[in-house]
Simulated scan of single mutants.
Amino acid sequence: MHTLTMDDVATALDDTARLLAPDGTRLRDPRLDGWVADLDAAALRGLYRDMALTRRLDAEGLALQRQGHLGLWPPAEGQEAVQVATARACRDDDFLFPSYRELGVLVVRGAQPADLVLGWRGEVQGTFDPYLLNVATPQIIIGAQSLHAVGYAMGIQRDGGDQVAVAYFGDGATSEGDTAEAMVFGSSFQAPVVFVCSNNQWAISEPVTVQSRFPLAGRAPGYGIPSMRVDGNDVLACTAAMRWALDHARSGRGPVFLEAVTFRMGPHTTSDDPTRYRSRELVEKWRARDPLHRFEAYLRALGECDDGFLAEVHTEGDALAARMRQAAVTAESRPALAVLDHVYAEPHSGIDRQRDRFAAYLEGFADEAGA
């Protein structure tokens, strides 16, 4: 079994751009400083609020799945900074293409609590209208959304717009052909697209050091795409890097690739047991770099965060989580056979046969319940 060592952690963090140390101390980076110089107190508190709400809703989703109300949940703990920062840096009319783990992107874009859970119950119309949020339906097929984002970006070019498309994916997706093809097309057509790779160190149980012997950001220049490796647990650095990337893409200079170095604190999904492939020591090493604690320390040093502000955010998070729970526990699922409804516009004998077989299958469970 491949393992990720402390030396690997040190290597992963050595060459990342950052503006905040793990203890919240403000650092200087000439590449990034100018891109966040205009952030006022309200903007900084907004970044913290969205990260905190994301974590609270993530915890509720995990609890709902463990209690049997959801079929699956992909935890996002530890990755809130890159999600919130990059989404907040975008304009409202930029179109975002997330993977299944970008809960923070949906929080920033104003998804309703029910939008976050009904899909994980398998309910009909269990997600949001993409055109209300300018966010595509989260993609489970690894890397597929990178192609969708490039296609949308090429459409922007043809329409003469100045919007940007953003593709979100994890380190595992960089091993997929879809992502490689998306970067080829994006570069060849100089499409206004930003690739945001959340390198959380694990493609399920496979460490990134096995997927690539060199930083993932180093792959992009081979496609003719500029890149930056940024501390994914530093919300200020992620904001600055994303603003730079968006400016590059929006000004007609083509795609940008961001590698946000972060860590998935929980399991890949609720069907995974991460204790089988990584150590407690490693997890605690990354817990010391927690993005919320880091940013809270920075805001307290500025005098922009006190117990009253934190209490307000906590209350808001609890209220949203309660609405999310209510949506999940009160949802009424359609009968199982209804999955075959509306497959064809007209009656179809093949569907009729499938319905008969599926009904017989379901009847077998009814017999077991009766026994």
Score class of each variant (00 low, 15 high):
Leu103Ile: 13
Leu57Met: 14
Arg31Tyr: 05
Asp159Arg: 15
Ala288Tyr: 01
Leu103Gln: 12
Val9Leu: 13
Arg28Cys: 08
Ala338Glu: 11
Thr25Trp: 00
Val343Asn: 01
Pro22Lys: 11
Ser146Leu: 04
Trp120Gln: 13
Leu20Tyr: 05
Ala52Phe: 12
Ala311Lys: 09
Thr179Glu: 01
Gly222Trp: 02
Ala237Leu: 07
His268Val: 04
Gly119Phe: 12
Gln139Pro: 06
Gly232His: 07
Asp171Ser: 12
Leu337Gly: 01
Cys238Leu: 13
Arg334Gln: 13
Gln79Trp: 01
Pro22Leu: 12
His248Ser: 06
Gly254Asp: 02
Pro74Lys: 11
Asp231Trp: 04
Leu116Lys: 10
Thr179Gln: 00
Cys305His: 12
Glu284Ala: 14
Pro215Asp: 07
Asp92Asn: 11
Ala81Met: 03
Val230Asn: 03
Ala260Trp: 06
Leu320Lys: 05
Cys305Glu: 06
Gly78Phe: 12
Leu27Val: 03
Glu123Thr: 10
Ala301Cys: 02
Trp202Arg: 07
Phe195Arg: 01
Asn200Val: 09
Asp318Arg: 14
Leu362Glu: 02
Gly222Asn: 04
Asp33Arg: 09
Arg276Leu: 15
Tyr298Cys: 14
Pro30Asp: 15
Val166Ile: 15
Glu176Ile: 05
Pro226Glu: 11
Gly126Thr: 11
Tyr100Met: 02
Ser271Arg: 09
Pro207Arg: 07
Val235Asp: 03
Phe189Ile: 03
Asp367His: 13
Gly218Trp: 02
Gln79Cys: 10
Val256Glu: 01
Asp38Gln: 10
Val164Phe: 02
Phe214Ile: 13
Ala165Tyr: 06
Arg213Phe: 05
Gly232Pro: 10
Gly172Asn: 01
Ala21Arg: 13
Val184Asp: 07
Tyr344Ser: 13
Gly119Lys: 09
Asn199Tyr: 09
Asp40Tyr: 05
Pro192Arg: 01
Gly254Ile: 04
Leu103Tyr: 10
Gly364Ser: 14
Glu181Ala: 13
Met1Thr: 12
Ala37Tyr: 00
His148Lys: 05
Val150Lys: 08
Ala167Asn: 05
Thr174Leu: 15
Ala319Leu: 09
Gly170Arg: 06
Glu312Lys: 06
Thr54Ala: 06
Ser146Ala: 15
Gly155Asp: 01
Val313Phe: 04
Leu340Gly: 00
Ala288Asn: 03
Leu57Thr: 04
Asp129Lys: 12
Gly46Asn: 08
Val9Asp: 03
Val82Glu: 08
Asp92Gly: 04
Pro130Thr: 06
Pro215Phe: 05
Thr270Ile: 11
Glu259Pro: 01
Arg253Glu: 11
Leu258Met: 10
Arg88Leu: 14
Ala297Lys: 05
Ala153Phe: 07
Pro138Leu: 07
Arg300Tyr: 00
Phe214Trp: 08
Glu176Gln: 15
Phe189Lys: 14
Ser251Phe: 00
Trp120Asn: 14
Met183Thr: 01
Gln190Cys: 08
Asp29Ala: 08
Ile140Gln: 10
Lys285Cys: 11
Pro347Asp: 04
Glu368Asn: 09
Met228Lys: 01
Ile225Val: 14
Asp40His: 04
Leu258Ile: 15
Gly308Tyr: 04
Arg18Lys: 15
Asp306Thr: 07
